[in-house]
């Protein structure tokens, strides 16, 4: 049974940081790149996120993550380069289509923002056990029920997928066409839905009973077998992040007033 997680196990400083510190970095860096319509600011954060990824030894995985959005990024360049509303200065022609400087610069701004978003969150996801992130959030006051939903989804989706393949196999063994033209696939999909949904509902009910029996509904103080420690480094990094964020917001307001 696979777990839906991109976590890469390594022993680095970044891995040892508290998950919330990494989450805070991701959120603040994303907000700042969106506060300033500046490629330089974006590039600075991309560089910093990338250096974090390299020091956490997850650079290769990060490239794989970026590959996923490559097509979207390319389409941003093409669409903005060709059709951005403020396009005025032609830069080059390709197959009879004119690309404009304004559009290309704007697409670059969007790209650094998106890339930073992926890398900064990637650092969080690739270097943190999903259950640690959820445990950390619950320990800091997130509702345990919501925490349970977040944590269980990662394991229960792969389980549902394996149920799906079992049902498909069972149906195929009784002659249902699951391959072929679109219509055949579509009807096979509908045949799958009934048992899958019912099965999942029954399992969800059983799981609800099982966790209730183990005190999930008990109100009161909870303890944690894995306490996620906040180290000195975490505290300093958080302070630094808050400072950077405050400065950025103030600076942005000043720019806006002037």
């Amino acid at each position: 049974m696979k777990v839906l997680s991109l976590y890469v196990e390594r022993d680095t400083f970044i891995h040892r940081l508290e998950p919330i510190t990494k989450l805070l970095y991701a959120l603040i860096s994303i907000v700042i790149t969106f506060l300033f319509p500046s490629i330089t600011v974006g590039a600075v954060f991309v560089a910093s996120s990338l250096s974090l990824a390299i020091s956490a030894k997850v650079f290769k995985r990060m490239i794989l993550l970026l590959n996923v959005v490559l097509i979207i990024l390319l389409s941003i360049v093409i669409i903005q380069g060709l059709f951005y509303s403020k396009n005025a200065t032609p830069v080059f022609k390709l197959w009879g289509l004119t690309f404009y400087k304004e559009g290309l610069l704007y697409s670059l701004l969007l790209i650094v923002r998106v890339v930073n978003m992926i890398i900064s969150f990637g650092v969080l996801i690739l270097t943190t056990r999903p259950s640690d992130l959820v445990d950390d959030l619950v320990q800091k006051g997130l509702s345990p029920r919501f925490g349970y939903v977040l944590a269980s989804v990662l394991q229960i989706i792969p389980q549902m997928l394996s149920t799906t393949s079992t049902i498909t196999d069972a149906q195929r063994s009784r002659g249902l066409e699951t391959e072929g033209n679109l219509l055949q696939r579509f009807s096979a999909f509908f045949a799958l839905l009934g048992p899958l949904v019912l099965n999942s509902l029954v399992e969800a009910r059983e799981r609800a009973m099982a966790i209730e029996i183990r005190g999930f509904g008990v109100e009161g103080k909870r303890t944690f077998v894995r306490e996620i420690p906040e180290t000195k480094a975490d505290r300093w990094i958080k302070v630094a992040l808050y400072v950077v964020f405050t400065v950025a917001v103030v600076w942005r307001i000043v720019l806006w007033i002037m």
């Binding site: 944590a151 799981r207 183990r214």
Partner: peptide, 29 residues
């Protein structure tokens, strides 16, 4: 009955799975 559906699903290791109920009841570490 079903061994699969009574696992909490929220824990990544066997050790933490056993801890699930104890955490809920606030048993000391």
């Amino acid at each position: 009955q079903n061994p699969f559906s009574q696992i909490s699903g929220a824990k990544m290791t066997v050790y933490e799975e056993v801890a699930f109920g104890l955490e809920n009841l606030g048993i000391e570490k």
